[in-house]
Design a protein around this nucleic acid. Sequence first.
DNA 1: GTCTATACCGCGATAGAC
DNA 2: GTCTATCGCGGTATAGAC
Lengths: 189, 189
Amino acid sequence: MKTLSRKDEIISVAAHLFNEKGYKAVSMRDIATAMDIKAASLYNHISGKQEILSEIILKVAEEFTVGMEKVVSENSSAIKKVEKVIELHIDITVNHSEALAALNNDWMHLEDEDLKAFVKMREDYEENFRSIIKQGIDAGEIKQYHPEVILFSILSTLRTLYLWNQKRGKLDVNILKKDMVSVLIKGIV
Amino acid sequence: MKTLSRKDEIISVAAHLFNEKGYKAVSMRDIATAMDIKAASLYNHISGKQEILSEIILKVAEEFTVGMEKVVSENSSAIKKVEKVIELHIDITVNHSEALAALNNDWMHLEDEDLKAFVKMREDYEENFRSIIKQGIDAGEIKQYHPEVILFSILSTLRTLYLWNQKRGKLDVNILKKDMVSVLIKGIV
DNA sequence: GTCTATACCGCGATAGAC
DNA sequence: GTCTATCGCGGTATAGAC
């Protein structure tokens, strides 16, 4: 456990506030007040509000990218890969719950380069997931529904997991993984 | 097809912009410009920005409330009720896609009375859905997973359906209903 | 019903003292 | 590294002419 640099502290406090009210509704003064300093002092550690947002979003977006690449490169069945993706989301959600709020809701407020980088990562991620599902359907492991319906229903559940995780105080991670994998893959009937 | 009043037009244009950038990132000037008038002119039709937001959100929230009450009062199996809830979400999504963006992302910017009313409606809605699922488990119609996991995975898919509906140009509603019901209830394997 | 003009405020950001 | 003071901008909203 290393201590947070002042910059990391700003990012952490900002992520918490962005999670509650959204990027645009949180002012530099709000962030400073929460740290018991003045807004002007923030600028000794970060270049501006934009930098805070991109640090929060791109850092966790890269975790998804790396995790997905690892899953894709594995030598296992499609269903096993889907399970791994579900577990990847759960692990990241547990560790970066508040950053995921910004990633889901405020990515469109990124600028230029950062926006382009994020959109590309998200598209690649979805494309990788789509391929896994299609392989599963071709191999007869997954039922022949419209692949987009499957992709969407799983992904939207995983993407909003952070909301649910916050609301109902941390359920045990392993129980969550087990039930979530079952519900998403095997259905409820 | 009745003509839109000027007020309805403002609400419609605002919903479109809120959907793209979020409530806080859209100014009264933005809304006015999109209507080819000046910002000051908006105030002859609405009391302020707040009123626009609550008209958008509360109108569609009431549709969910009414629809859910109808489902709950039906005399049918739990699974049949879950199917009806899924269809309710799909119908509302198709008709009010942009309002759902505000409902999902900007509800916290409602004020006082409106905020209270919205939160109550959402809690009641979730509680009704939870009861249906629990009844299904008790009756042996639904597998014995943690009810919250089932509730969450279905609801989060339905709540983000508006995003997907916008991205992949309107798929036929009936095909969507059929596959979505199957995927969510029967799973993918 | 829309306009111009304007009041008033809070925003992000900077300069310079300590 | 934090402060006070301040700049310039853009926000919501109102007043009053047309």
